[in-house]
Design a binder for these strands. Sequence first.
DNA 1: GACCTGCTGCGGGATG
Length: 825
Amino acid sequence: MDQSKTKGYKKIKQWLKANGRKPFKFQEDAWQHYLNGYSGLVNAPTGFGKTFSLFLAVAIEALNASETSNKKAKDRLQLIWITPLRSLAKDIARAMRETLLELELDWHVGVRNGDTSQAEKVQQKKSMPEILLITPESLHLLLAQKGSSTLFKNLKCIVADEWHELLGSKRGVLVELAVSRIKGLQKLEKNQFLRVWGISATIGNIDEALDVLEPNEAEKRIIIKADLEKKIIIKSILPDDIETLPWAGHLGLKLAYKLLPIIEKSKTTLIFINTRGQSEMWYQHLLNIEPELAGRIAIHHGSIDFELRNWIEDALHTGQLKAVIATSSLDLGVDFKPVDTVVQVGSPKGVARFLQRAGRSGHSPHETSKIYFLPTHALELVEAAAIKEAAKTNNIESREPFIMVFDTLIQYLVTLAIGDGFDDKVIYQEVKNTHAFKLILPEEWAWVMQFITSGGDSLSAYNEFKKVTKDEDGLWKVKSRQLAMRHRLHIGTIVSDAMLKVKFISGGYIGMVEEYFVTRLKAGDNFRLAGRVLEFVQVKDMTVVVRVSKQKNAISPSWNGGRLPLSSNLGSVLRKKYNEALDKTHQDEELDVVYPLFLLQEKRSHVPRNDELLIELINNKEGFHLFAYPFEGRLVHEVLAALVAYRLSKLLPISFSIAMNDYGFELLSDIEIPMDESIAYEVFSPKNLTEDITLSINSTEMARRKFRDIACISGLVFQGYPGKYVANKHLQSSAGLFFNVFSDYDKHNLLLRQAYDEVFYQQLEEPRLAAALERIQNGAIIITNPKSFTPLSFPIKVDSLRENMSSEELEQRIARMKAESEKVR
DNA sequence: GACCTGCTGCGGGATG
């Protein structure tokens, strides 16, 4: 049915017209489909009003129904808007409130998350706002409330904003489960209005993204793709001479001076750096080469105090700050806080991340986004060319949804049990209808139920694991109030490392550092955080107390963050660009600049073709090196190196030390490594892959480490109260205890199985590894014997040296390598 | 010809 003749629809169009705006076609598409009862997914570039496509659809519906809507205060809730970030909720709420005012629609917009005050929560309990902006965690907390099952009676729509961010994580599973429950509750009330919509940036598996959000194919579902091109210009910051760019390295300070004019001529600049520690170094370096920037630039990353970060975001927004150096902490929030210019320092490792960052500039529909790329080593210029091509052909990474995560399921069931309780037959069906658990077997469900009611086979002797019991009304509930409170504190799937807050003696928080970093400090030592040099005084009440230091130089804490491996999309385009660089079949200025390096690589060894695997055998004083370059990212290379080492050692007793980077890996041995074409095909074979991986790496140890998160999420381990401190060691050891008990007495424990699955599929990326080996089998293997290190092998060598050496020793070693290299020349 | 690596995100309320 055409909805454009309805009262509300006309009003919205008039209102837009009065503001000099015309809806995009995709927005009207979304309104029409929403009003006709569809669920779906909206996919459009940033800056085109994705938010308004759905928010206004719900508003139209409300305007159409305005006379009849006279609901009891309790039944007000119409729209749940899920955002992955608290800060986004604030910005979206503001925009919605302004719009509602202008539309004269008397609706309230509420925000519900960890920042919401107790008073406000009580108020919401009495009377929900019509629109509620909420995080996945807080939505589960809502389900954990007594009396929550009536809240969703008149709910019309659930929107998962930035759905691509949640999709590839257990937080996405939280959304799936909450949606399944709310649908079930509406079925009970026989009031089924609910439509489920996602808003997503472009990802490789957009169809699957919809399947996860609305798995029922019988529903009316649609994907609305905006037929709009966002123009993006990618400009590499090129060295005047390739020789100024190092062969190896990740910091990139050598080209920093080229950034100054860019910062100067832009009103606001966002500089993305890959790591927290490096962002501190860049900040210091920019101030050193341009003291005028003092007070006009700032750092923003995950270990800087929340308040300070808020201030920085606002100051950039208002133009008080000229530039901010940031990690992925500023990836999101594109639609509300655009900047003039964006710079990416070093490899972004993936196409999607790079484009998302680019989108923060030139944000309105007809502007062009511009992003500068500053390479930190020579080969990164090839990455720049590869990203340009991937962006042009829309070769964007997928986000793999999680399935069969029993820790999250266990948490969810206890959540329901501390709320209004649950009927296991009903919930089983609901859970089985989600994407995450559609493969769950009746016996697995029975195991989960047994686990939350009795603690399972191995924990049945302990009362604290008998969490859930059947009530007189036939529903499963948690009786203990203390247990319920502890559980509420633990809702969510993010498990953090032990961090200590950093605070001035005089008061005022600066940020966080890791526990282990502090253990190495003694009183009087200096370190750098949030761009300031701080003198360590003491640790008191689990807070690091510091004062301002007069020293200029200090160490930067390194935080043990996640690793960002090269995505396989980028890897494959990268291999292609290697050929074009040597053949000069390209139009990339970046490749022109690195051309001399490719010539040298070809002269000393070989530039691998698209369908080739290059193996370099180099023999020097250090020993016998084998380098191989699959371009699959360092996580895959880590496993691949162990696998090849294991298979070689079956041919002849030999041991290796292993090193890798995003492009390839190295095996180093004292004795000559047996290698020819037939051996190469054999050791890079996908045959017996799973068994050989298991034998070549210590999967038990890896699973044990994964189990820490699983133990926390499933509620086996209590992480302590917020603000109170539980030592990391304690957490690891008690999770380890459970791991041992389950391994010894409860082999069929599903949480144990999940730990191994997570190791194989997420950490080792077995499917990607298998695909890489398949590709290698079908291509050629080229073996060369260079006389010295090549442009490809050198960076791996430097990285491997760095791991075991101080920087001074490293300096000497590099000087020696350089000298030896020159002799050959 | 060549050095300083490792991201982000969340989080109590029932009862007197």
